[in-house]
């Protein structure tokens, strides 16, 4: 089965969702992120959904669950780049994801979890060198 890749950037995980996910793929992603937080000790999880043109209640619930599980594992989850029509529809649906932090883009999301872009460039250089 296909899987959504999870990148490690410094002490954060970056997940970019670009395909329309069916429910099993969403569930697999939830499991993968949880496992990856444990193995990497990540302090933050950024989920970039700027490529998604809908988020329904199932995907909304998945985002909520990831954030809650992450919190218990001491990682802050930030949902990044939700498009206006998607946000309007989610609110209309009755899902406001109050437990989830949000940011306009990945850079702001990084800042929100206390990691600046410079920080992980630093890390990357260390990793590379």
């Amino acid at each position: 089965m296909d899987r959504i890749p999870i990148l490690k950037l410094g002490s954060a995980l970056l997940v970019t969702i670009q395909v329309d996910m069916h429910d099993r793929l969403a569930k697999a992603l939830e499991d993968d992120i949880t496992a990856k937080i444990m193995t990497t000790g990540a302090k933050g999880v950024l989920i970039d959904i700027s490529g998604l043109d809908i988020v329904d209640s199932f995907m909304g619930r998945m985002l909520d669950t990831i954030a809650s599980v992450g919190r218990m594992l001491d990682a802050t989850t930030v949902v990044v780049g939700m498009r206006p029509p998607v946000a309007i529809t989610l609110v209309e649906l009755g899902l406001t994801l109050v437990g989830v932090k949000t940011a306009l883009n990945v850079e702001r999301g990084m800042a929100l979890i206390g990691i600046s872009v410079d920080d992980f460039e630093e890390v990357d250089r260390h990793d590379g060198g």
Partner: peptide, 14 residues
Amino acid sequence: GVVDQTKIVTAASE
């Protein structure tokens, strides 16, 4: 419009 598209697609998904 794109907002109405998103609403009906989401309703269909549910």
